[in-house]
Design a protein around this nucleic acid. Structure first.
Length: 480
DNA sequence: GAGTTTGAAACT
DNA sequence: CAGTTTCAAACTC
């Protein structure tokens, strides 16, 4: 029995039909007639209201509705970090950005949700680089393998990310230009079920993306899963867990069982604690994240965790079992360490070092959108240069300090940090710039080394409110 | 590569 | 809202 195209959605075994043959005129008839005006909740992360969009955006929408593609030349009126990221994308990636059907509402082409890196789906991220051409040419960030969803449900990473399937291994795909009407209906249906369906899952804060981790002096941003995970068996330490996959700690939003994805978890630490001091993958990863952070990552953004896994393996080989994951975790810690003064570190023993994840937003991204533009050796060179400069600066500052100490005034400046976040009085840091993995010298965003105060939001936000065995009462470190 | 496990999404 | 089913990714062998 052959039903009208789309009439059997979800398509039970209708995979014989050519994906691209469906005439857009009569597609998907069993979707309830939804309110077409509904807009993707891209604004959920601070996107402008539709009415606020400039005329330019409307023109963009019109263009997109015609082509199904986001004009690369679009000029955002309010450049935000995600926007910058989008613009920084190679055109080959941008071409895959597509806009959700919004018949009456202008597009918000600059919202992170429509970035081609599929920030929304951690799953998508883990395979990102696996889809890069061997020559390094960036290709579609991911390839789904959907068989039954026609790539018109959130099961499909492409669909969930707001991009067309292209080169995927999916069957009976309707997530393409040829089936735009069907796709549009699917989007509407999805939004009907969940207005936030296309909203990023990982937020830098409960209230959305924030430009800087120290924004408004509110301490560090603590990214967390908007909905939280519901893991039962994975302990939230496998990529089944969206939090884990996004490389963030489980939060109070989670309803997981037997969660081990919390700071202080020995199981979690066991996953990424290892000899990484000279791990090039780690170095590259951290640098990558640092650059991303500097360029601008919206927390949810790319945590990209994994999908660059294969690329990393290509670059560095299988130095560790799961380099990407470990890298992310390691880098997370190293940035934390780098951002905290040595004295505060030394006063906090090991795993009890409080909410480490809360201290550093590093987990935001493991794959910079510039990753396709900046090669690892570039990063290495940059790091080398920075190391040199940091070294020189450190020496100069140390000399200066010595001078002032000789002059008699300084009685104890052990906690001071230089502009690069390097504790100048800590000889270990002076001589081992990469001691913590990467480093103090990785080009981290300008924000000077902040001294993390336990009283900050980050500290007060126990990522996992549940009481964990190894965490005692899940308390936070009290500075006093 | 096939089969299993897992948890989100979809459905009832 | 809770329970169940479906789905595709992650994982294992």
């Amino acid at each position: 029995m052959e039903k009208i195209e789309g009439g059997d959605f979800p398509p039970k075994k209708a995979q014989s039909e050519p994906a691209a043959t469906a005439a857009s005129a009569h597609v998907v008839t069993d979707y309830p007639a939804k309110k077409l005006a509904r807009q993707l909740d891209f604004a959920g992360f601070g996107g402008a209201a539709a009415a606020d969009l400039p005329e330019q955006a409307k023109q963009v929408q019109q263009q997109v509705m015609k082509s199904g593609q986001l004009p690369v030349s679009m000029k955002p009126t309010q450049m935000t970090r995600p926007q910058l990221q989008t613009q920084a994308l190679p055109q080959s990636q941008q071409q895959h950005i597509l806009l959700m059907p919004m018949q009456q509402t202008p597009v918000q082409p600059t919202h992170p949700s429509i970035r081609p890196v599929k920030p929304e789906s951690p799953k998508a991220r883990s395979r990102q680089s696996a889809n890069e051409a061997k020559d390094g040419t960036p290709k579609k960030p991911k390839q789904c393998n959907c068989k039954h969803s026609r790539c018109l449900k959130l099961y499909c990473e492409c669909f969930a990310s707001g991009i067309y399937c292209d080169g995927c291994n999916c069957a009976n795909c309707h997530n393409n230009v040829e089936n735009e009407p069907a796709r549009r209906e699917a989007v509407e249906a999805t939004l009907e079920r969940n207005p936030h369906a296309f909203r990023p899952k990982i937020a830098s804060s409960p209230h959305g993306v924030r430009e800087n981790r120290e924004e408004a002096g509110d301490g560090l941003v603590l990214p967390k899963h908007n909905k939280g995970c519901h893991c039962k068996k994975s302990g939230c330490l496998k990529k089944y867990c969206e939090c884990f996959q996004a490389n963030i700690l489980c939060s109070e939003n989670c309803k997981c069982m037997d969660c081990k994805n919390f700071e202080g978890s020995q199981e979690r630490q066991a996953l990424f604690h290892g000899d990484h001091a000279n791990n090039m993958a780690y170095l590259q990863q951290a640098a990558n994240a640092a650059i991303t952070g500097a360029i601008g990552s919206s927390g949810y953004g790319s945590p990209p965790v994994n999908k660059k896994r294969k690329a990393h393996e290509l670059f560095f080989g299988s130095m560790i079992k799961d380099p990407v994951y470990r890298l992310g975790q390691l880098q997370q810690e190293s940035q934390i360490k780098a951002s905290v003064s040595p004295s505060s570190l030394s006063s906090i023993p090991g795993p009890r070092f409080g909410n480490a994840a809360a201290l550093g937003p590093s987990k935001f991204t493991y794959r910079s959108l510039l990753a396709d533009l900046i090669h690892p050796h570039d990063i290495k060179e940059l790091c080398s240069v920075l190391v040199d400069y940091a070294w020189e600066a450190g020496k100069m500052l140390a000399e200066t300090k010595c001078s002032s100490m000789v002059r008699g005034a300084d009685s104890g400046s052990q906690n001071e940090v230089n502009g690069n976040g390097i504790a100048m009085t800590d000889s270990r840091n002076q001589h081992e710039p990469f001691r913590n993995g990467v480093a103090n010298t990785v080009p981290t965003p300008p924000p000077p080394p902040q001294k993390v105060e336990p009283g900050t939001t980050a500290f007060n936000n126990n990522p996992c409110p549940k009481v964990h065995p190894s965490d005692g009462n899940g308390d936070v470190i009290s500075k006093s």
